[in-house]
Amino acid sequence: MNIRWSRIVPQLALSPAVFLTLVAFVGSIIWTIYMSFTRSRRLPDYEIHWDRPFVQYERLLGDKAWSISLDNLIVLAFGSMIAILVGFVLAALIEREKRGEDFFRTVFLYPLAVSLIVTGVAWRWVFNPQLGIENFLHELGLTWIDFNWLADGETAMYAIILASVWQSSGFYMALMLAGLKGISDEIWQAARLDGVPLWRVYVEVIIPMMKFTFLTCAILLSLGVIKAYDIVVAMTNGGPGQSTWVPAYFTINAMTNKGNLGYASAAATMMLVITLMVFLPLVLITAWQQRRAKKGADT
């Protein structure tokens, strides 16, 4: 009897959380997908016009602002990969130089404690021509330098990428540092005895051994990029024009400014599809690599 209760009690304790997850998360996803097939405006309209059930998706695929959002999403994704590279380099430097590890780890992790809104506002000041880097350089006599990236639609997204990399590099550094600490010292000693250059040790040995860490970082990065919204609002509010729109900004704008629930639901559903297209392959690759590594260890 005691054994049975020891199994049932944890399940009973978790049941409210499972119920809330099903209602608030899964239920919301199903409701949003359903709304995307309706012609709802500010208020829900649960009638589906079966003659054209995909009307919202047709409008979405023909919307230039949505195309701009997808293009910016790709730019943001590739640009944000720099954060993983910077995180790995910082972790490698800290791991090789043991002195001051706690200090530097705290310093590089500090931006992570700042919200994306605060990060965006701070970097908007940095790019302000009257207050930021451009003003500082002009005072030094370098008047030909133009650092007002946020005012130019061609460079505004790169400013957002730079702020995102600054904010997230410390997080990826912590993950990489944990992966580096899991590597045996015998590998470093063997490489030192064989006279192998340090860069070859990292490229040919360390990085392949840390493939699961890199995959984890890639998964987290992809999720963060797809839902990027706060930092865009704080730095540019989608401007200049629509040059820094991303899917999350497009979706919320369709709901709040245009008051079009059906259209916003279609955009949100497309975001879910994009997330699954990126997230599931990475998860499957990670699971396959883990299974392969386990079979290799067993043999």
Rank of each mutant, 00 (worst) to 15 (best):
N72C: 02
P44A: 08
V55Q: 11
I84N: 06
R99W: 14
W149F: 14
E95V: 06
V75Y: 13
K64P: 05
D152E: 15
G141Q: 03
T155L: 11
A77M: 11
T119S: 13
S67M: 10
F104M: 11
F104E: 11
V118P: 00
K98I: 09
I48C: 06
G132V: 00
L142S: 08
I84Q: 08
L93W: 11
T106P: 00
P44R: 05
R96S: 15
G79L: 03
L162Y: 02
L76F: 13
N128G: 04
G100L: 12
V121I: 15
V107R: 01
R105A: 11
W144P: 05
G153R: 06
Q167E: 07
D63W: 06
G153M: 07
V114K: 02
P129N: 10
N128R: 02
W149R: 03
P129S: 05
G120V: 02
R52E: 15
R105H: 07
L70A: 06
W166F: 11
P44K: 07
I74D: 07
S67E: 13
V55E: 15
D102G: 15
S69H: 07
V114G: 04
G79P: 00
Q56K: 01
D146V: 01
W166V: 03
P111V: 10
S168D: 12
G153Y: 07
E154S: 12
V118Q: 00
E134N: 04
H138N: 09
V165M: 03
W149D: 01
